[in-house]
Write a protein that binds this DNA or RNA. Structure first.
Lengths: 261, 261
DNA sequence: GAGACCGTTCAGTATTGCCGAACGGTGTTT
DNA sequence: AAACACCGTTCGGCAATACTGAACGGTCTC
């Protein structure tokens, strides 16, 4: 592990959470290094356009190259590229907004967002992050993770975002069991009051779960008795088609293993 | 300058251009270091989720954290945040798609995209990059840069994307002079055949240009004799309003200057 | 089945990045 | 009005740290 690079990444994280930017002194304190060290790191990041210095206050903010790289990530992301067509189809079939997400550490990252066809003004949620245990996408993914990974996530901090957020590991274990038996995950106001979601996992040709796709919208529309069943079927079918598109079902190739010493 | 961090950034750039990912050996060759060096850097970046290793081929790709950071950049970007409302207004007034862009090195980065109201399927271009000399946004910005910066950009390589791309510095100087006299920049099929753009610069409260806003669409609609004048006025007015929103016109505060030894 | 290639590990060396102290400047307080 | 506190930046030296060459266990190709 390269120490200075790890510190540089910490700096990016700090600047990402500091809305109005941060100065050298503040950055140095937050990551626990001397001021000149933080300065040198910031200057290097600035040369690469990963951070930008406000030429008026002297403070540092995130830089434009991150947006470029984030876009490059999306364009080279197999799941995201393949999901675009399927997400649109699902959005029309369900008449709801559709999200495609992947797991990043302990939260879900939205990599594609198809708008609800009839919707009015909607804001694009690509790039948004949600704690895994508060959304249907996260539960769909985690339910199909290898057991050790799943256990680690269940052990981690489970913050409560609303009164309905399930923060008890035992409750979440039940949810995840349900996902594996029904083939889809449900969220009912656990991330934001009034919002619901229905999602199903997506697999690649090694059989591992790589993400999830699902619909999101108001509780009243998504979880109404007469709508819920149909939506679940539509979501599950789309996820299966998308998985096949990624090669799932083909004979699994042997997984690549690092050479051991 | 921290060497290892600079190399890590180079790695990100390499992975961003390698569509199918790249292996350790390839990365090491491209940035000119020994294989174990590249490996250590990649592992560190992987720990921070800036890169991800394909667990089947062993190759490395960009990671999800870049999308998160790119999103954080957008949300903390003053120009982008303020432009959202103005861009929508302009899109409706002009009935065309609207882009907001900033200059990043020698190309323009699209930080906001308001869809054309009547348009059908349109793909979101946020995060896209365009050589500055091939788009209206770029010309609008560069025309108002300090002379030394402008000269440096005119000296740089000016690639031809279409037969109409202006690659002669003298021709671009003329364009830039025109931008300063008319208050707006025009592009006519210089980035992609059939696409045109009209853009105007946006300033902050120090009087420096921070970006540009403009309309883009087919040549036939944008540059028709009867439409062009009205669009130019609408774009210029929107840019001025947006600039005032950012504080332009207020008494310029003294610019922040680094302490010299 | 032999060869080439790839990702990874290990240990040593000297390069390189880290830190304490100091500087010039700005904004604030007394 | 003047002194203070704070900030971003620079400098020089020490030693921690990151880089390199060689080697290892795999997989894929011929």
């Amino acid at each position: 592990m390269v120490q200075s690079v790890a510190r540089a990444i910490q700096i990016l994280r700090v600047l990402g959470t500091a809305a109005r930017g941060a100065g050298v002194t503040e950055v140095a304190e937050r990551i626990g290094v001397a001021k000149p060290t933080a300065h040198a790191l910031l200057r290097t990041l600035e040369a690469g356009q990963l951070v930008a210095q406000d030429h008026e206050t002297g403070k540092y903010r995130l830089g434009p190259a991150l947006l470029e790289l984030g876009n490059a990530y999306l364009e080279t992301h197999e799941l995201r590229v393949r999901s675009v067509a399927w997400a649109d189809g699902l959005a029309h079939r369900a008449n709801e907004a559709v999200w495609v997400g992947v797991l990043s550490a302990d939260h879900v990252l939205v990599v594609h967002h198809a708008f609800r066809p009839e919707g009015a003004v909607q804001i694009l949620e690509v790039g948004a992050v949600i704690p895994w245990h508060t959304c249907a996408l996260g539960k769909a993914i985690v339910a199909h993770l290898p057991e050790t990974d799943r256990a680690a996530l269940l052990r981690g901090p489970l913050a409560a975002l609303t009164g309905a957020t399930r923060t008890e590991p035992s409750a979440l274990v039940q949810d995840l069991d349900g996902v594996r038996t029904t083939g889809y995950a449900v969220e009912d106001g656990e991330a934001a009051i009034g919002d619901a979601g229905i999602a199903a996992p997506v697999f690649d040709h090694t059989g591992d779960v790589v993400g999830a796709i699902g619909v999101i919208g108001p509780v009243e529309r998504l979880l109404a008795e007469e709508a819920r069943g149909g939506l679940a079927v539509a979501v599950r079918e789309t996820a299966r088609h998308l998985s096949r598109d990624l090669g799932a079902g083909r004979p699994a190739t042997r997984r690549w293993v690092a050479a051991a010493s």
